[in-house]
């Protein structure tokens, strides 16, 4: 059973993937996200940190046995158990499919849309409109897939659900207001099911769905 | 042992990952990349294709048993064997780490630099210069890691080597001229070792390293 420390800044959706996975597997995970254990921008630029995690990125995982790992998908996978990784070769492949899907299809448009509403990026009307269209396409694919399914892979929560749900966390909280998400009821049903699992709740707390689409915060 | 068909356009570095993995595992893979088996832009927009592969993207894999998979990392993983996936939990996690590294750290700057030289995109001087700097940083990380290692994970080829090498294929062929790659000799040593493995050669053929950095192809 894995045991170690996850270095991250607070409220990092990438770290949530690993934290939720650890809830399912029982891996013992200490979170180092605030001073003195970890100060983002300082600790991750120190020679000691960079010798273990050469990119200086977080989340970064160090096992109590000294095993070091970066890249959130790898950490989440390591802290999982076989049940949520996918217990057959086909299930495991499908899990990886949705993990890749989250990174390549959801994160770019989700970030492009959400970041300006958080005031951490300049607003660009064209970029936002394009991001909305891309996210609609992504939600349509998910909605169709979840038409007859409770979870993304198999009949129980897997790393696919954890990863995709975490990648949709900011969109669902910030911009996917009721009228926008209305055409994708299966996705919302699935998302609400996920975030209400005890293992998700232990990490995310209460997740309140967007009531009104946030706009650019200057 | 997996057996199926990989739909792709020809010379697709993403498809190469899966094809090389299949060479290692012995999975029987038919490549559908040209007419009449597959015409990129037509076949992947057909209702039949989209019902199996809703994003319409390639590579896409259909097993002889009907099992369908998209996202190149998932396909490559499925067509691998346990040896190249990583035979211990830690090795498997490290493999996924480098696979994520390739997607998040290599592909964006590699695409920004190489696409204009292939005539795929317009040249943008600032984007190209930024891409060069990012790729230098990435190569430095790899060079340090490979200082005392022959392969990225463990003592033999893994999916990590296959994925990272395929993501560096266009850069090494097109833009990483001798003077640019001179500070990263371990990376070039490792890359040349990989592409000269019989399993790589069977898919890639002879890989000729860049002699002179390609410029924008209008």
């Amino acid at each position: 059973m894995a045991a170690g420390t996850l270095y991250t800044y607070p409220e990092n959706w990438r770290a949530f993937k690993a934290q939720i996975a650890a809830q399912y597997s029982g891996a013992r995970l200490k979170i180092a996200s605030t001073s003195p254990a970890f100060t983002f921008g300082q600790t991750n630029r120190s020679p000691a940190f960079l010798s273990n995690f050469p990119l200086g990125k977080v989340p970064a995982y160090q096992g109590d046995d000294g095993f070091c790992l970066f890249e959130s998908n790898a950490i989440a996978h390591y802290l999982s158990n076989d049940a949520i990784r996918g217990s057959t070769p086909q299930a495991a492949a499908r899990v990886l499919q949705w993990v890749s899907f989250a990174d390549s299809e959801i994160i770019p448009p989700a970030s492009a849309w959400v970041f300006p509403t958080l005031g951490i990026m300049q607003f660009n009307k064209q970029a936002t409109e394009q991001a909305k269209e891309e996210l609609k396409r992504v939600l349509a694919v998910l909605n169709q897939h979840l038409n007859t399914r409770t979870f993304l892979v198999g009949e129980r929560i897997s790393l696919a659900d954890i990863t995709v749900a975490c990648s949709l966390l900011w969109p669902y909280k910030q911009v996917l207001e009721p009228s926008f998400r209305q055409p994708y009821p299966n996705v919302t049903r699935w998302f609400v099911t996920c975030v209400n699992q005890p293992q998700f709740k232990a990490v995310l707390g209460e997740v309140k769905l967007c009531e009104k689409m946030a706009q650019f915060d200057a | 042992m997996a057996a199926g068909t990989l739909y792709t356009y020809p010379e697709n570095w993403r498809a190469f990952k899966a094809q090389i993995a299949a060479q290692y595992s012995g999975a029987r893979l038919k490549i559908a990349s040209t007419s009449p088996a597959f015409t990129f832009g037509q076949t992947n927009r057909s209702p039949a294709f989209l019902s199996n592969f809703p994003l319409g993207k390639v590579p896409a894999y259909q097993g002889d048993d009907g099992f369908c998979l998209f996202e190149s990392n998932a396909i490559a993983h499925y067509l691998s064997n346990d040896a190249i996936r990583g035979s211990t939990p830690q090795a498997a996690a490290r493999v996924l780490q480098w696979v994520s590294f390739a997607d998040s750290e290599i592909i964006p700057p590699a695409s920004a630099w190489v696409f204009p030289t292939l005539g795929i995109m317009q040249f943008n001087k600032q984007a190209t210069e930024q891409a060069k700097e990012e790729l230098k940083r990435v190569l430095a990380v790899l060079n340090q890691h490979l200082n005392t290692r022959t392969f990225l994970v463990g003592e033999r080829i893994s999916l990590a080597d296959i994925t990272v090498a395929c993501s560096l294929l266009w850069p090494y062929k097109q833009v990483l001229e001798p003077s640019f790659r001179q500070p990263y000799p371990n990376v070039t040593r490792w890359f040349v070792t990989c592409v000269n493995q019989p399993q790589f050669k069977a898919v890639l053929g002879e890989v000729k390293l860049c002699e002179k950095m390609a410029q924008f192809d209008a």
């Binding site: 991250t8 970030s111 492009a112 | 356009y9 990129f40 832009g41």
Partner: peptide, 30 residues
């Protein structure tokens, strides 16, 4: 938290590259 998020490396342009690649290879395939 927002400071960390602001420093995340996101490939915002990815769809533009995907589109260019798709268009190019569709052309290559006639």
């Amino acid at each position: 938290a927002l400071q960390g998020l602001a420093q995340e490396k996101i490939w915002f342009d990815k769809s533009r590259y995907d589109e260019a690649e798709r268009s190019f290879y569709e052309g290559e395939n006639g």
